[in-house]
Design a protein around this nucleic acid. Sequence first.
DNA 1: CAATGATCCTGTCCGC
DNA 2: TGCGGACAGGATCATT
Length: 267
Amino acid sequence: MPELPEVQTVLNGLIEVLQDKTLCGVESYYPGTLIIDPELEDDVFPAKLVQAERRGKYIILHLDSASIIIVHLRMTGKLVYEPKPDEPHRHERARILLSAQDALRFIDPRTFGKITLLRSSNLSRYLPELGPEPLSDAFDAAYLYRSLRHRKAPIKNLLLDQRIVAGLGNIYVCELLFRSGIKPDRPGAKITRKDSRLIARHTKEILREALALGGTSISDYRQIDDKRGEFQNFLRVYQKHKCPLGHTLHNIKLGGRSSFFCPICQK
DNA sequence: CAATGATCCTGTCCGC
DNA sequence: TGCGGACAGGATCATT
């Protein structure tokens, strides 16, 4: 459930933690969590972090050894800084080793998360096709209208498609559609120019609000120092029974995801 | 190409 | 009290 605000918050914490640290290696304790590029050079570690960025829900760590670490938290992944880690925790799937015996633990009960270690020049090969960042100028009403006008899938599914816009997940899509007054099952082709403006505006608005509060902590998500985000206190429909006006909410499955909406406020 | 559905996985919750 | 089943969902793959 980490979406753009949660991933960005983790990245911000990671930049703090990795300041002046030397990365010494990666270990994995669960098959499939750590992916190693076959073309990776031999002498990757020790290495310094030279740049850390986020693209959609992917964290991209550029090392000075012409290599990159990509982290994807998926559902339940957590990065936890530990000055003196002992034996791997029950749900610890991998570990990024730092100087002076400290480490970043990758805790992931449901095991969907991935850490990839690759040669820098192969980055495009290891990142899927991703649409524009929702907070960038490229994500505007005109772009959205063009992307949706010939599609008959529900708007909810289309906004979850990372090829259309990168970084949204189930929680924020439910919330931004409520704010936009649009039912989640409306076909993309029925989204007007005016609706596109509402979606673009509310997407940016809600992401900025959530970023300012360190994200939404539902179930497993935590910041790198194990603090919760606070945006869950401002959700209006996700996992709620009534909208802010007191109307009873509906919950339908779209693309296998629960989709909360108000049958009165959303058209 | 577009749309849909299954799949992966385990902690948690619910009903009986 | 215990157990079986439903549920949570991001990305990928298979099918139509």
